[in-house]
């Protein structure tokens, strides 16, 4: 017994020593971590899997919401953050951060109503704002019926679904509603997280889609890939030009085309409620945020290589998930930005 005790103690000591020495020997962790936007998670995770197979470099991207991405890159706990809300110049300068777009996509109002197929419901910004303000509470409200005279809408209460975490999807959505509805602007405003007048909160685009799928007569807003991949009903929208448009790559592209990237500093440009005739009204860009003087240069280099690879080889994957790849002129502008702004 004495010996068995001794050996178990010896084992514990040896094990503790082994763990401690592993720490000591390699103070540097080996993974490259990005975190943030769930809006881009579907495509970034596809990219990262493909990139890992091609190069062996592992980009660990965690979908924790844009708010989380911004917070974690500021805290320096990840190699890059991803956000669908651009940071302003003051913030970027204060933290020594730079930002560049990685992909463009569309946010759609998504719903779950028996008998109403995806793409069959028409909504406009005012109605959407009133639903999210809690002023429209039933699906057969005159405002909705007026937009959808042919639809058979139930007299059921609307369950509003929003995000529970800080989100760039929320930023673009609330930015759009602020542009359309003065009341929304005054009462709620825009941001990655806002004080919701009504509704339940889902975590990430994932969580919102899951709730919409599960709760009858609900409405929410998600990146289009989430609605499409999960067969969730989505609405078509009346845009700034007064046309009813579908959420398609062509219409996201139409909105993106109105963007004047050349004059934007740090690519700070929000394209909601874009003016084009076919433009999808809630089209959003996602940005990658990194330190201009990265503390871990090796990791940052791999991250840049990853995005370069994605711009060049990830376009088909992006399109297959209904994202709009960045136009070549913008990619060129980004690469110049890298050269000028990032010191490595």
């Amino acid at each position: 017994m004495l010996t068995s005790h001794k050996s178990s103690i010896r084992f514990a000591v040896a094990a503790a020593f082994a763990v401690a020495s592993t720490f000591a020997m390699s103070a540097q962790a080996t993974d490259i971590t990005g975190a943030g936007s769930s809006f881009v998670y579907p495509v970034v995770s596809k990219w990262s899997a493909a990139y890992a197979q091609k190069t062996g470099n592992q980009i660990n991207y965690q979908s924790i919401g844009s708010g989380g991405g911004i917070a974690q890159i500021k805290a320096g706990t990840v190699d890059f953050g991803a956000s669908d809300m651009p940071l302003d110049e003051a913030t970027l300068d204060k933290f020594g951060l730079g930002q560049f777009p990685d992909v463009i996509g569309g946010i759609v109002p998504a719903f779950n109503i028996d008998g109403v197929a995806p793409g069959k419901m028409v909504l406009d910004g005012t109605t959407l704002a009133d639903i999210y303000l809690g002023k429209i509470t039933k699906w057969n409200d005159p405002a909705i019926v007026k937009l959808n005279p042919k639809l058979k809408l139930p007299a059921a209460a609307i369950t509003v679904v929003h995000r529970s975490d800080g989100s760039g999807t929320t930023f673009n959505f609330s930015d759009y509603l602020s542009k359309i509805s003065p009341e929304w602007k005054a009462k709620v405003g825009e941001g990655t997280a806002v004080q919701w007048p009504v509704g339940i909160g889902g975590k990430g685009n994932e969580g919102v889609s899951a709730y919409i799928k599960q709760i009858k007569n609900s409405i929410g807003y998600v990146e289009y890939a989430y609605a499409y991949q999960n067969h969730i009903g989505y609405a078509v929208m009346k845009n700034a030009a007064g046309n009813v448009v579908e959420p398609t790559i062509a219409n996201f592209q139409a909105a993106a085309d109105t963007a004047d990237w050349k004059d934007s500093k740090n690519f700070n440009l929000v394209m909601t409620n874009a003016p084009g005739a076919k433009a999808w009204p809630i089209t959003a860009t996602s940005w990658v945020i990194m330190y201009k003087q990265p503390k871990n240069v090796a990791n940052a280099k791999v991250a840049f290589d990853f995005f370069k690879w994605a711009y060049e080889h990830g376009q088909d994957q992006a399109r297959s998930l209904y994202y709009v790849p960045l136009p070549p002129s913008l990619v060129q502008q980004i690469e110049t930005y890298w050269k000028n702004e990032y010191k490595m």
Partner: peptide, 29 residues
Amino acid sequence: GNSYNITSSLLMPGTTISSSIANEFNEAV
């Protein structure tokens, strides 16, 4: 349901201290 509401109905969504922390801690500054 993760919603910051104080309601009289038990059928309505709400939030708790622990679920607020779990939902928002990683993004909070």
